[in-house]
Structures are given as C-alpha cells and as structure tokens.
Nucleic acid binder design. Structure first.
Lengths: 249, 249
DNA sequence: CGTCTGGATCCTGGATCCAAAAAGAGGAGA
DNA sequence: TCTCCTCTTTTTGGATCCAGGATCCAGACG
C-alpha cells in the first residue's frame, strides 16, 4: 500500500549529492529529438504550412512517438513550429508576417541590451567575438546553414552578454533564433548573408575603437538592412495559395 | 501492411472545411490541466523551489499523467515552472532575480508598444479599458487573486493592442503574466495592488484627454513603482536557504 | 456535371505499462 | 557517535495501446 506521504513537500535538497547537476549533456531523448528536428527543419526538410507527422519523425529517429511530442512542444516554444489543437504541429506558414513583427521587437531589445553591455565587454569577449566572426565567415563560404545560424546567434549573444540581465540575454537569443530561421527560409540567397557579415566586421571595428555609439548604430543598421531587404523582396506575397501540384501516384 | 506514403507532404488544405478553427474552446485535456495548474500555482498550493509531483496532479484532476506532462510543458513556456532534466518540474525558486530581470524588459517593450498604440485606441477600446478597470477594482476588493491577475493582464493588453504588431502584443502578455505571478508570490500585500489601481485610473484619465505622452509616463511609472517597492522589500534575500523544518514522522 | 453526404482511413491525444534514475533510509565500519 | 555505503522506494521518462476526430474519397442526388 502506498502509504500517504506525511509531508506535503520534499525537504529542499539537504544533501548536495547531485553528481549530474548541469555538468554534462545528460540530454534526455526528447532533447536530442528536438535537436535533430531543428536541424531537419533548418535543412529545409519541411515546407511552410506543412504538418509534421509524429510517427514519421519517430521512426526516422528510432524512438517512440512520445519524446517526439515533447520535442515538438520544445520547438513550439522556440518558434520553430506552431500547434493546432487537434491537427498537430505545423511549420509556420506566414513567415513574412512573423518577420515583420519580430524585427522591431528585436531592434528595441537589442538597443536596450547593447547600451548596457557594449561598454562592459572584456578583451576576452572581444577576442571571442572575433573568433566567432571568422568562424562564421568560413561557415558562410562553406554554405553550412545550421552552423552559420549558430555562429550568428553566438555573435549577437556575446554582444548582449554583459548587459547584466540574464533573462534579456535569453530572450534575445530565443527571438534571434526565430528571426534567423525565418530569414533562412525566406531568402536563402547569399548576398544578404554577405552583407550581414560586413556589418559584423564593422561592429567589431567600432568596438575595438571603443566607439560604442557607432557599434550600436551598426547593430541597428544590421537589423534594418535585413528588414528592408526582406520587405523589398516580399512586398506582398504574390499568390495567396500557390496551388502546388497535387501528389501524383 | 501500412503501405509507404507516396507523397512526402499532405496537399496543403485544398478545402477550407475547418468548422472548428478557433471557434469554441475545444480545449484539449492538457490545456484544461494547464489552466487548473495555473490556478493552483497562483493560489499558493506550491511554494518556491518545490518540485511538482506529476501523478499527484493527475490524480487530483482525474486524468492520466500524460496530459499533466504536456500541461507542465505549457506552463514552462509561460514561466510558471522550470524544468530540471531528470528531476521534473519545479516552481522557480529565485523569483527575486527573475523579477529584477523582467522589469526592464517589460518597460522598454511597453514603451515601444505604447508609442504606437495609445494614439490609435478607439472609443470602444477606451470603454473596454474602463470596464476592465472597474472590474479589477472589484476583484481587488474581493481579493480574488486569479481574477485580478487576469484583469490586469487584460488592461495592459488593451493598451498595447493597437500597436500593429501581433507578436509584440503576445510577447507582452506572456512577460506580463510572468511578472504578475512573481509579484503575486513576492508581496501579496494589498497596498501595492491599490497603488497599481491608482495608476490605472491615471492612465485612463490621460487617455481620455488624449494626452498620450502623459499616459505613457503613467504606464512607465506603474512599472517603476512596482520595481522600487519590490527592491526595497527584498533588497537582499536574508537567508540563502531558509532551512525549512524537516518533515516529522 | 457539380455538390453534398456518408463511410473508410489515418493521425493525434490520452491511458496504461515498463525501465531507469534519483532520493531516502538503514546498517556497517571507523 | 558520525560518516559512508548500499538497498529500497518513489518518481520521472519512454514505449505501447486505444479511442476520438479530422481528412479524404466515393457515390448519390440535384
């Protein structure tokens, strides 16, 4: 008989015996599934508006459907998919609107973080920034999508890292991830990436001169540039429903 | 034999025959569980740092453990709980730090949204605002916690609703929910609530005069007030680990 | 010939079951 | 008597199974 537990709460960890505690990636299967799905999505395995079949993913990963479900919920938080109550999880089908909404949010938050953070960056941070930048140059040339995205995130995360607000850094990373992913779908053209690269160089140069105002301007210009290029390209989605050819047997 | 599916993607909804589509709350069990858990958490059924036992909740709701798991993931997105990989979901145990981080984010985003939204509010919006405000007055007097929180969210949501950025409204609501919940835990004292109420009246008055700058100032003052009151009260958490009495047999 | 309705099929959501891991308790040794 | 180790219990994480519902296709009717 499972005797009723006398204390409503567990004593708050009297022993610090937690040899795991954030040490290694004891990654649960769901997290690994989320990682794999993220890669697949970024790799273009799905197209906007498509619903993700859970057991297809499960079979593909060699696991059951449950960790896939959890992974999809994780990806929902990260903005990679959206949930429709009895239909499942689908790739967002209106990336245009989402991007137009996201840019101003990211701009204002990045400015706020940058004001506090840029002047506090240590020489080690700057070195890290430069390493990340050169690595990203290589990734761009090699056309490694996921790697480029990760390095771009890293770059911006370093820029904001010293703002003294952990939650803000976290939020910026989450929104930045969404933006990069959406940009990735919208225009996978390399010219845009090259432009972003140039801007990154400019930011680093300004930081090395300790010209923080200029660095901040460059950061905003970086976003604004992408925003404009984007709106120019997708001023209005031409076909409301592209009427893709039906599956042929 | 489940014959291999010939087309990798389902034809993208050729028929718009979706009689459900956001009509009624076809709420899945997990969503209802999330709602119930939210109420319980706000009601103080758990204390900061406590881990939530999944099958306790499941038994309490008369459902299996799986929708509870999904509900907990939903609540994780909303910031009500945090996840520890092999331990479960716990009530965040450092609300102080979280609040100090959240206030500036919410302030800067609210200012951005308010600049665009306040001048676009319709008379109907203002009426809605006033109705919400009076309802919240009543809820405060009746000490109905969850209701007060919901109405407060509604109030701020209306203020930002015309900013033309759906994602921003959504983000503000999410962060605002976190802040209100954390405030609720930190100081459940009614004086603070009363002060917030006063500020709401001031915001409405300024809006009726179409003095948007003043309304914006009032909005920021609203947050700043709570921020200061909060920091004054919890300047430094006195006991790092309150050393709760162990359960007695 | 187009449209609507009915049934078959597939997929998601929920329940139940099993394994693994962490916490808790008790005993042995210093 | 205190500490460390081991064994038990509890709880989470994952797998499998079942039911409800949505889509899709075919046939009937206008």
């Amino acid at each position: 008989m499972p005797k009723v537990r006398p204390a409503p709460t567990r004593p708050p960890r009297p022993k610090p015996s937690r040899p795991w505690a954030e040490i290694g990636p004891v990654a649960t299967v769901a997290e690994r599934a989320a990682e794999a799905l993220r890669e697949k999505i970024l790799g273009g395995a799905f197209e906007p508006g498509e619903f993700i079949r859970q057991d297809d993913v499960a079979r593909g990963l060699g696991v059951s459907r449950m960790p896939v479900r959890e992974a999809l919920m994780i990806l929902t938080n990260e903005g990679f998919v959206t949930r429709v109550p009895r239909r499942g999880f689908q790739i967002p089908d209106r990336p245009v609107r989402a991007l137009v909404d996201l840019y101003p949010i990211l701009t204002v938050l990045e400015r706020h973080a940058g004001k506090a953070s840029l002047s506090e960056l240590t020489p080690a941070d700057l070195a890290h920034l430069q390493r990340t930048n050169t690595a990203m140059h290589q990734a761009v040339r090699a056309a490694e999508a996921a790697r480029t995205l990760g390095l771009n995130l890293e770059f911006h995360r370093i820029l904001a890292s010293r703002c003294g607000n952990a939650r803000l850094v976290e939020l910026l990373e989450q929104l930045g991830r969404e933006v990069l992913q959406l940009e990735f779908w919208s225009f996978a053209n390399p010219t845009h990436r090259a432009i972003a690269d140039q801007e990154h160089d400019g930011i680093i140069a300004a930081l090395l001169r300790r010209d923080f105002a200029e660095a901040l301007r460059r950061m905003e210009a970086n976003r604004l540039l992408a925003y404009d290029a984007f709106r120019k390209q997708f001023e209005e989605p031409p076909a409301p429903r592209p009427r893709r050819a039906a599956k042929r047997k």
